[in-house]
Design a protein around this nucleic acid. Sequence first.
DNA 1: ATGTCC
Length: 485
Amino acid sequence: MPAPSALKRITDTTWELPVSYKPGMLVPARIFATEKLITAMDAGVFDQVSNVACLPGIQKYAFCMPDGHWGYGFPIGGLAAMDPETGVISPGGIGFDINCGMRLVLTNLTEEEVKPRLRELVDALFYRVPAGVGSHGFVSLSHDEFCTVAEQGSRWCLKRGFAWPEDLEMTEEGGCFPGADASKISHKAIDRGYNQIGTLGSGNHYLEIQVARPENIYNEELARAFGITIPNQVVIMFHCGSRGFGHQVATDYLQLFLSVMERKYGITVNDRELACAPFRSREGQDYFAAMKCAVNMAFANRQVILHRIREVFSDNFGRDPADLGMEMVYDVAHNTAKLETHMVDGRRRELLIHRKGATRAFGPGMEGLPERYRETGQPVIIGGSMETGSYLLAGEPGGSETFFTTAHGSGRTMSRHQAKKMVRGQKLQRDMEERGIYVRTASWGGLAEESGRAYKDIDDVAEATERAHLSRRVVRLLPIGNVKG
DNA sequence: ATGTCC
């Protein structure tokens, strides 16, 4: 799809749509991509990112990351910073899967040690980390206790023995966004979520056993600082979010915002999917407090999943998880809105940052990073498709341009429908096994949809973020085992 | 993404 002719190239990897591109734009739109990626980007991205540039209170630019593609209202890969006093909060700028995110866990095992047990490990993970639409977890909670989880996130997990203290430190915001208020959650959302803690979900959610080969290390020093110290070291990466709970929170508040946006607040938007409310309004604050519940539920979900991964490896190897070196590298959130302080035109300002399919990537020395990563910058985890590999990167000072935000994954090039027509799940499983990747899936159709052929080249995305100085490559990770939702 | 429509 050709890019609009109004698109101007600002640098090697920065592209801009000026405010003249569309009536109502308050700021220009900026897209970070290589020439190859911008050429392949779907036209919906340009339309959507310029719609976002019209939202009240937006600061500097409406952004799209190199993995950007068409989404609900905002593009996936979208980033918008609003003035909290004059700006809006928009569920479409966060996504239905609130705090969908990635977690990376180390082991001190090598590929040679894991290979003979790979099938057993993946089969055990497939059993112990429930995957698929409508799956429910092993943790049984009352509605009341679920509300505590939603308010406390990983802190609840620590109390219940599902976390090591250092896990919280290696999670964005310590695994708990403060200000979550379960009284702002509908009964329906609680009912959908209370039995979903410790479940992977479906779609592009997965759990993967990966290898860090010496030839795939881009930066030795950062790799060492992030715990990649052994040749062919095995790591575990997984991707999941707030399940039906977050989905219901988003649905509830989109409905509410649509009913008040124009009538009560006189806000008009280019697309109903950009439904929003003033951040300082009652509705805006209620959504903010409810969204944080879904953020915290997702942190707790990933934490319980980590606990179960540790159990699987511990049982299989007959050794304590600590003895297997199963420490977290980091946990990153993809779909959030947060108040953060950033420099804007030489002034420190508090901004409401919407990240939708985009990763926070704090540079070296920034407040909010754990001590271990103060010198290195934040670990950034970018998931590729299950066939092609993923990246561990590091935040860098150049990220200031995007309020320290980078890409989150490959981004689709093919619709799910299209992929299912071209790929058969059973055949893909056999093909992958021949290439040394053992995969188990909850749904053959779901597996076909996630074929590597349906995604952008992760190498292009990682390279684009580095060339744009949003994050630097540390190590490329290759899959050997995968549990697919 | 999602008890893929209450």
